[in-house]
Design a protein around this nucleic acid. Structure first.
Lengths: 157, 157
DNA sequence: TTCTTGGTTCTGCAATAACAGAACTAAAGA
DNA sequence: TCTTTAGTTCTGTTATTGCAGAACCAAGAA
């Protein structure tokens, strides 16, 4: 008996499209498609075999992709009483945090650029000025973006 | 005669550090190190062979990395009268734009998520609500972040 | 005309990534 | 006890990436 779930042509196309986007954001092809499936499928909680058979990927690819995404907190799973299977779903609640993290990533650049400026010879005045301007842009964004998140959260309540 | 430029131990270490960061941001190892060199070297305008010999990379790697970064507008070059060589330097002025672009990248996610929400079954109410909340966060950020850039620019004048 | 300079392009290799398929395993039924 | 379920882990293959080294090339210089 097949565990394939019903999926329309349109949904499949959208999954492919999402796959491309998620690949660009760093997921493997298989993981990207799983994310896509969990986003567009009518049933948002799917088992290992439903995912595997619907997307036609191997057990190993499914297992590795799922565990990778669990460890990244991109997906999560629930269980049901008297059922050994896990039901996987995207962890949308965490998406906001992962966007925050993405922004924080640029903070890494900010730190090292400060180090560069400190170590640079003082003789290249124009260059150093441009660099310090760039750094202060980051400083500004770093201060303001968290405020933006807070402001948005405030509008939700 | 060697074209190697003088570089301190400290500068070399910083170049490696920058290399790691730039690799994470999508550059190849060679390109990442060239960016690093152009950022920390006392002389900010270096020739093909100065780059190549200082970093000990092959001609082909140097050529490919430079052309890739030229096409990405991450570096630029100047020439000097009666000198066939090109002098490469990082295009710091463009960095601001590339940060803007980075933020715009997330706009891609925003568009496709709207498409997902439209195609979704209406029956998964909780899920759809979370999704639409996520989308509106993006809408908010997309509106507010350009304003942030403008506000920062205003403080510079 | 040949040589030198400042690169570019081609060929081949080594490392890594992503996956399939098959063997394996731990827990729960039967 | 044996079997099924729900995966995990191992082995091997294929595709891709990043690079070195060498051949190549176009524009002056000699």
């Amino acid at each position: 008996m097949s565990n394939k779930i019903k999926i329309t042509e349109e949904q499949l196309k959208l999954i492919e499209k999402l796959g491309v986007v998620f690949e660009k954001l760093g997921l493997t092809p298989a993981a990207a498609r799983i994310e896509g499936l969990l986003l567009v499928a009518d049933n948002t909680e799917l088992t290992f075999d439903e995912i595997r058979e619907t997307l036609n990927i191997s057990k190993s690819a499914t297992s590795n992709a799922i565990n990778m995404m669990l460890s990244m907190d991109r997906i999560e799973y629930i269980t049901k009483p008297g059922d050994r299977k896990r039901y996987f779903r995207t962890h949308i609640a965490n998406w906001k945090d992962s966007v925050k993290e993405k922004f924080a990533e640029t903070g890494m650049l900010h730190e090292i650029m400060k180090e560069v400026l400190q170590q640079r010879t003082a003789s290249t005045k124009e260059f150093n000025k441009s660099l310090s301007e760039f750094i202060s842009l980051f400083e500004y964004l770093r201060k303001e973006i968290p405020l933006l998140f807070k402001k948005w959260e405030a509008t939700r309540k």
